[in-house]
C-alpha cells in the first residue's frame, strides 16, 4: 500500500483463455499501477469477468502470464495471492454475521484476536455500518451488502482489489 507511484501492481502478458467453442480472452496485455483505478469496460460476455477471475486465481490461463507485485503468480493458488475480488453476486457467507464475514480473511492470516476486532470495527465504521455487525447478510439491503463485500476484501489490505460490476447494486442506495 505504501508503494511508489509508478510501481506496477498487476500486469498481464499475452493472456489467453479459451472455453469450449469460444476464446474468452485473446492475447490481453495490461498494466495497472499502484493506487490506480483501472476499469475494464465492454458488453456482457466479452471476457471482463474472466480476466478478473484469472487475476484472482479462480481460473487458470491457457497462455500468458499474470504478475502481481512483479511476481509471476500463474502457479500460485488463489488463497496465497495478494489480490481480492468483490464478486458480482457479492458472495457474502449467509451463515455468518456481518462481523464474521469481514473477519473471515483475517482469521486465516493468524492476526491476533483483538487486532481482528479492531480492524473489523474500523472497517464497519468506515462503511458506516457499525449497527449491522451482528446481523446476517439477508437482513441487509443490496447497497449495504455491497459495502460489506467491499469491506471484507479491503480489510485484508490487499495490494489490489478487483471489483466486478460495481454499479449493479448502486441504484438501490
Amino acid at each position: 500500500m505504501q508503494g511508489e507511484q509508478d510501481n506496477i501492481c498487476i500486469e498481464l502478458r499475452n493472456l489467453v483463455k479459451m472455453f469450449p467453442g469460444v476464446t474468452a480472452v485473446n492475447h490481453v496485455n495490461l498494466k495497472v499501477k499502484d493506487r490506480e483505478v483501472f476499469s475494464l469496460l465492454g458488453p456482457s460476455g466479452c471476457g471482463k469477468t474472466t480476466i478478473l477471475r484469472i487475476i484472482a486465481g479462480l481460473e487458470t490461463a491457457d497462455e500468458g502470464e499474470v504478475l502481481i507485485g512483479g511476481q509471476v503468480v500463474n502457479e500460485v493458488p488463489p488463497y496465497r495471492r495478494d489480490c481480492n475480488l468483490v464478486f458480482q453476486n457479492l458472495a457474502l457467507f449467509p451463515h455468518m454475521t456481518i462481523g464474521q464475514n469481514i473477519a473471515y480473511g483475517l482469521e486465516r492470516k493468524r492476526v491476533a484476536k483483538n487486532e481482528i476486532k479492531k480492524r473489523v470495527n474500523e472497517m464497519l465504521e468506515f462503511m458506516s455500518l457499525e449497527a449491522m455487525k451482528d446481523r446476517y447478510p439477508v437482513q441487509l439491503s443490496g447497497g449495504q451488502q455491497q459495502r460489506i463485500a467491499l469491506a471484507r476484501s479491503l480489510v485484508l489490505k490487499p495490494s489490489c482489489c478487483c471489483w466486478m460490476n460495481p454499479w449493479r447494486h448502486w441504484t438501490e442506495n
Binding site: P77, N84, L85, F87, A91, F93, Y104, G105, R108, L156
Partner: peptide, 15 residues
Amino acid sequence: INPSLLEASLDLGAT
C-alpha cells in the same frame, strides 16, 4: 451451495 461462496473463501485466503 452457491459456487461463488467457495471461490470467495479461497480468494479471502482459505485453504
